[in-house]
Write a protein that binds this DNA or RNA. Sequence first.
DNA 1: TATTGTTATACTCTATAACTATA
DNA 2: TATAGTTATAGAGTATAACAATA
Lengths: 157, 157
Amino acid sequence: MAYNGKSKNDNSLDLKTFLPFELAVVANRVSRMVGRIFDERFGLQIPEWRILVALDHHGPMAPNDISANTSMDKARVSRAQKRLADLDLVDIVDDPEDGRRKVLKLKSKGQKICKEIVPEAIEREGWLLEALTAAEQVALQSILAKLHDRTEEIDEN
Amino acid sequence: MAYNGKSKNDNSLDLKTFLPFELAVVANRVSRMVGRIFDERFGLQIPEWRILVALDHHGPMAPNDISANTSMDKARVSRAQKRLADLDLVDIVDDPEDGRRKVLKLKSKGQKICKEIVPEAIEREGWLLEALTAAEQVALQSILAKLHDRTEEIDEN
DNA sequence: TATTGTTATACTCTATAACTATA
DNA sequence: TATAGTTATAGAGTATAACAATA
């Protein structure tokens, strides 16, 4: 028996139990819920806070590394980092060892925002997870990692 | 201990283990993977095939009902159904009982496409699910339903 | 030639709201 | 007034590719 009990004779598809559909719907809702915090409180959009959080966690990085760490393509990163620099939240400096590269560093203003925003993000995540049992929370983490790997073969991002 | 072992003293956030981020990344990848079938083979985009599949499963519906069933707003449904009508895949007829309403019905060409496309979609879903254990497959279904409900309070869609 | 990063393009999605026709 | 559906608009996401500078 398949995922949701679809039988071979059931030749129509109920979107409600179709994983790619449900995943998209839930992810969109969650994304909007979390994105709202950053937008309302700091005027930051998702690409921007992804970069902030990545810099906060990993330290200074080149746009290329940010791209790899945030699942955003280099064009998106480039535009977002420019907005962050305009807001004085990050510094963009040339890499002395490779003239093509740049390195992004959090400025103190950016660090301050992270200090404020990260706990809120984790709190929202926690609110979501309250809907799940402890076992489901553990399962979800491993499920997402497996689906992440499974789709790796498809394309980068 | 929280979801992924975050401790209270860990004041930075690793995106890789942040549910809203991972969910978005995985959902996007899955969505692209499945969307590619419809796009390459039939030139259909996600809003279009969501409508086709919904009509195929539930029978004729008004745009409003389609909106509710596919998690798309009425504007998006309106544009997509027009494209489907242009492609001769659906009929849009006036509801004789309510002059404001319309009813969408699959035409034979649309039914044919569904017959061809649904098994492929289910096959791709199956390929994804192969990455999970049987227990995880069951858990995932219930987890998504719970997260769906949990985010219901946020807004409609 | 290949790579890093920026910029341009075109198309889609998203959200909102104005608008019409009917109830 | 409220509802069903259409249409317009603006902002953001997505994909692609052209481009400049450096390796």
